[in-house]
Nucleic acid binder design. Sequence first.
RNA 1: GCGCCCAUCGUCUAGCGGUCAGGACACCGCCCUUUCACGGCGGCGACACGGGUUCGAGUCCCGUUGGGCGUACCA
Length: 473
Amino acid sequence: MSDKVVTRFAPSPTGFLHIGGARTALFNWLYAKHTGGTMLLRIEDTDRERSTEAATAAILDGLSWLGLAWDGEAVSQFERSPRHREVAEELVRLGKAYYAYETPAELDAMREKARAEGRPPRYDGHWRDRDPAEAPEGVRGAIRIKAPTEGETVVHDLVQGEVRFPNKDLDDFIILRSDGNPTYMHAVVVDDHDMGVTHIIRGDDHLTNAARQTVIYDAMGWQVPKMAHIPLIHGADGAKLSKRHGALGVEAYRAMGYLPQALLNYLARLGWSHGDDEVMSIEDMIAWFDIVDVNKGAARFDFAKLEALNGVHMRAMDDAALTKVLLETLPHLPDGEAFAEKFDERARAQLLQAMPGLKERAKTLVELADSAAFIVAERPLTLDEKAQAILDADARAVLKALLPEFRALGEWTAASTEAVVRAHAERTGLKLGKVAQPLRAALTGRSTSPGVFDVLAVLGREESLGRIGDQID
RNA sequence: GCGCCCAUCGUCUAGCGGUCAGGACACCGCCCUUUCACGGCGGCGACACGGGUUCGAGUCCCGUUGGGCGUACCA
């Protein structure tokens, strides 16, 4: 047995990989990478009603997109149920657990009664010390753990510190259902133990569970792994993350045009920090991440900051790489499929050429795609409102006067077209903007774009002259 | 109800008994500039409240308030 760190990400496949899950996965992954350990993946599919194949696929796909690779094969918790049953039965044999025969209806009644009498709704331990011979005929009971009734259970948490739970508040919870399947509480313990997990990093909504799970570890005489309960992510209004906020699947973030490394950077900084460092690469995160630096308080999800960070990461990429990512991501963006088809080899080259100017004014790949649309726009261009306003009669007259000068131009580059325009402005006494603005509107159909001379160069002589001509006829 | 966790600018955070309480996003100015951005400079803006402990508390302790989680034969 080595002392290598083994973490695990254990989502339940009842939906997509949501943003909170992604961050939990990230922290597990970072800690494993940081320490030279491994991160395992376990699909917690014991709830057969709600678990789906599609959800499992979505989670795997989400992790892959983010680049959070797990080690080894993904483990199906459901497939391990014989082992869970075996341990539960051993606990009974050891006298650490027992069969209980109440029906769900009876348990509901028990809880109702307790609530009505102002007592905590806990199992009353009816079968705890009863002779198994008294078991009702033909009824298969559920197995309950014998939780300690006195003292306290202490959870040593790497983030939360030493957390103490009075044992009188722990009841004899069920570890094996009457249908022979384990409950989550039990399956987790058995799996984490069997998989050799050394560090359990998960959301702090599990902190209370940690005490219950400790009871099972103790009963089996197993060593409790190190635990780290990380704070949850809340919506912008401070309430629990819901669909309204950001509890979308990670694929939704891909569709919104975020770069995986930017999303990871943002997520990492939610609840964890490394001094004043804000922008960091994956390598930085791995080098810097440590559980002791994780905060205790929940953080709110802020799209504005994510977006800003995404802009920084896009600008940090070199043009070829960003062009490649944009083209690859296009099919995932809204209406991106049709848009992607327009990018033939020539248009791709133009996109690459325009990229320096495009990337510094886009915060997401969606914006980047949008501002690159002029490259593959069909003539005659559809002008947006502002472009229409710019191209009034005066502006069209300017373009008309400029056109012959462009036609006479030999070498067609950003520099040469700029020279023409500047000379034209000087001669006619117009401000440079008075020429550049109409030009931009005619060329792109928009009022904003990268430098208009770069646009001219990207579009090329023929296309540029054509688009200008369209506007003055 | 009971148990547990949390609490620094609007948001994310630095801080680990002595700081003009720092940074980032957002917002507002100015500069750069053919537009929009990018970039640069500057501004606004916080220790939830009340008690202690201490020569000295954002930092330690207690309480209050406010959030969150758990309390299932869900995970």
